[in-house]
């Protein structure tokens, strides 16, 4: 328990060591600590931002999906409507064609019947004339009785 000059030497060493620590130990380590703290803060902020971005992207994707579904539904409805319309038109067209064909066929049939009738008339007239000829022989002059025959033909 003696007091001596060791005390003052220790005092000086004390200040030298403290100065050295202040100069070379404390600042770099504190700087590293602060930098790491800010890095961590940045990382956390980035993670938060990524989370919000993800949420936004998800919401946008859902929107897009819904929109696409709506559009496709619309398209399908339109296509169906159009298809039905085309079908109706085709049906109407077909009906029209059938009707026209029927009319044409009926007309043709009428004409043919008329022609057949006329041919038949001619034939009947000829037959009548031939018959009359045979019956009357010489008494009937074909030229003389042409008027009479034509009249008869018209009456048939």
């Amino acid at each position: 328990m003696n007091l001596n000059a060791t005390l003052f030497a220790q005092l000086v060493v004390f200040f030298i060591l403290a100065w050295f620590t202040m100069k070379f130990v404390w600042p770099p380590i504190m700087k590293a600590l602060d930098e790491r703290a800010s890095k961590i803060a940045d990382g956390l902020a980035a993670a938060d931002k990524a989370k919000t971005d993800l949420q936004l992207a998800e919401r946008r994707a859902t929107d897009e999906l819904r929109k696409a579904r709506e559009t496709s539904n619309e398209l399908r409805a339109g296509a169906e409507r159009q298809g039905a319309q085309v079908l109706d038109e085709a049906r109407a067209e077909a009906a029209r064609i059938v009707a026209a064909a029927r009319t044409a066929a009926e007309g043709e049939a009428g004409v043919a019947a008329q022609r057949a009738k006329e041919a038949l008339r001619d034939q009947v007239a000829l037959l009548a004339v031939a018959g009359a000829e045979r019956i009357l022989r010489k008494e009937i002059d074909a030229a003389k009785h042409a008027d009479l025959l034509n009249q008869l033909k018209a009456e048939l």
Binding site: L17, F20, T21, F24, V25, W26, P27, P28, I29, K31, A32, L33, D34, E35, R36, K39
Partner: peptide, 17 residues
């Protein structure tokens, strides 16, 4: 003590310590 700490301080990283 101070030299060991100073050596460490000189190559202290702000990354993973």
């Amino acid at each position: 003590g101070v030299f060991v700490m100073a050596r460490l301080a000189a190559r202290a990283t702000s990354g993973v310590p």
